[in-house]
Design a protein around this nucleic acid. Structure first.
Lengths: 336, 336
DNA sequence: AATCTTAATGTAAACGTTTACCCGTTTTCA
DNA sequence: TGAAAACGGGTAAACGTTTACATTAAGATT
């Protein structure tokens, strides 16, 4: 149906080899011949078939992203960053949503294998035996994003979650908070949830503060969950904490919402600090103080590491940390 | 490097045809043979090469999305909807960001052509001669989303922008507003920006109200632009409007922010209504009243129309409108 | 028992490229 | 002037599938 290299060759009165040479400029071809071919290509609108080329050259020009959540507020930015550098390298990005289900995740990975993807950007919450089998068997260049999977041998890019969380909590302490709650994420081994929690503990310990288990609650990374757990906390506890460190901005925003609905003034009655600096953070009132992580930048860097890996430049699993920065907007009060 | 169908065939002691038959179950094959083959596939982790298959069958299993903006707040939802049904049809989604630049947009489209995409979901702001040439020449099944391109002959899915805008403005009028401003988007022919503006005019006219050109400003679809144009409006006008209809939630949120920063109470001093119902709308304070459009649903429907088109079921360009609904939260006051 | 179906499998061509190899013509230079 | 080198371009094999067609063996029908 479409125009093929043969059609072009015939119409230009040359061999397909010559056509191939000009479209790839892989070998010199005489100017007149070249012009003739170019003209025919122009006229016919010929586009080389990437599947045929890919089959021959064994490269698809495709990179895949699998993510458990497309609405977590960092997705858009991450994709934007990824897409930007992928596009510069004339590759394309395939996205797959695992919805946090292991089966969907593996299905996506297998489709990626079939589609001969050259690299995978992997964002999951858990690393199972099946994951390990997959990556061991197929050896597709992969980088894990925003997370760490110790046994996997896969390189990852995350902010230094422990440090960042510690920074957040230290900031609260500097502002004279002593009763600090934390709404933390899932505590899988070395997960970002776990590490942020560790940072929290560390900051408390360094300041000689005691952790109060009533003030520590596990949440999902969602606005809703933040709201409900905050409500639980408010309901259960006899004395409210003076500050809350939330494991993500969405959680923080849920908590903020809950506080406001309970008639608490933020930050006058209670301070809140989040993590991520998603766009929502600048839009809620009061504006959310948080730990900023540039997810567009993260996306960019991830692809760079991935491309290095694809080009067989050895990449160590414990690769780059990405920067973070405390942004104090309006949800933290100094209790001096 | 990878395991091929030949390897499987050899190891199972059968012909490649048989292997192909079992992986596609395209023809019956004897149970023992089948088991043998299945076992070898299992052992070797063989995955059929989609590029080879695609080359032969002339289908790539790929659908593309080109969008001018990945951070407009509807992107995540749209992608989520799209990905959901695409995945059910065991296809994959390629995303490309045009950043609103025509050249990037066309480049993406051409890559899509090379990659033999089976269908395109197109979200652009303008439809140029080059676009027309592209779609005329290559005839890739395409559906336009959230927009309308009259001359293109391409089917599109949008809410009924005129009706929806009219509904929003009528709602303001019912609440006894008479001085109603509008922050509208670009006014290309039949664009959503234009249509929403037309809906605004229509509602005013029906109610016997005069349009005040001081109250009408063009914005980009961003929070920033909403903020600045609102500021302009506040600065320039001698009497403030009592209500503002913003062409999108992001614009509305910018405007809201601006009002608050100017010491205006919303909705007591000024009412605001937006369009889209993105997540931000429920998170700002006061919560934004808006016209809800379900973008996850939109994504789903778009793919359905696209798949129909791919399967050659004739699809009319003036296809489905998608539903909208007025959601009154807390930014509109009744002036009775 | 001879023929006809039917089922299971194999063979080989094709999909649209890239590229190793080959061949002819021209240029170079001793 | 003649051999070597350089250049331009063509032929055909290969990439990993699918599938039309051919083949074989076995069962059904007379």
């Amino acid at each position: 149906m479409g125009v093929t290299i043969k059609d072009v060759a015939k119409k230009a009165g040359v061999s397909i080899a010559s056509v191939s040479r000009v479209i790839n400029d892989s070998k010199p071809v005489a100017p007149e011949t070249k012009d003739k071919i170019l003209k025919v290509i122009e006229e016919t609108g010929y586009k080389p078939n990437a599947m045929a080329r890919g089959l021959k050259k064994n490269e698809s020009g495709l990179i895949g992203l699998v993510t458990p959540d497309m609405q977590n507020g960092t997705f858009s930015e991450l994709v934007k960053g990824i897409e930007g550098v992928i596009e510069k390298n004339s590759m394309s990005l395939i996205v797959a949503n695992s919805k946090g289900e292991i089966e969907k995740e593996l299905k996506a990975l297998h489709i990626f294998k079939e589609q001969q993807l050259e690299g995978i950007i992997f964002s999951g919450v858990k690393f199972t035996k099946k994951h390990k089998d997959y990556f061991d068997r197929y050896q597709v260049p992969t980088v894990v994003v925003s997370q760490k999977f110790p046994g996997s041998g896969l390189p990852h890019l995350t902010p230094d979650n422990i440090e960042a969380a510690k920074t957040a909590v230290e900031f609260l302490i500097e502002n004279n908070h002593r009763e600090i709650a934390m709404l933390h994420g899932p505590l899988y081994d070395q997960s970002s949830g776990k590490e942020r929690y560790l940072g929290y503990k560390k900051a408390l310990k360094n300041a000689g503060l005691k952790e109060n288990s009533d003030y520590v609650k596990k949440v999902e990374f969602s606005i809703n969950s933040g709201y409900h757990k905050m409500q639980e906390l408010i309901d259960e506890v006899e004395k409210l904490p003076t500050a809350v460190f939330a494991a993500s901005d969405r959680v923080a925003i849920g908590a903020l919402d809950c506080c406001l609905d309970n008639g608490l003034k933020v930050p006058d009655n209670i301070s809140i600090i989040g993590f991520d600096d998603i766009e929502l953070a600048t839009v809620v009132r009061p504006k959310l103080s948080t730990i900023r992580v540039d997810h567009v930048e993260l996306g960019r860097k991830v692809v760079e590491v991935l491309l290095a890996q694809i080009k067989k430049e050895e990449v160590k699993p414990e690769c780059q940390k990405i920067d973070f920065e405390l942004i104090n907007r309006a949800t933290v009060k100094n209790l001096s």
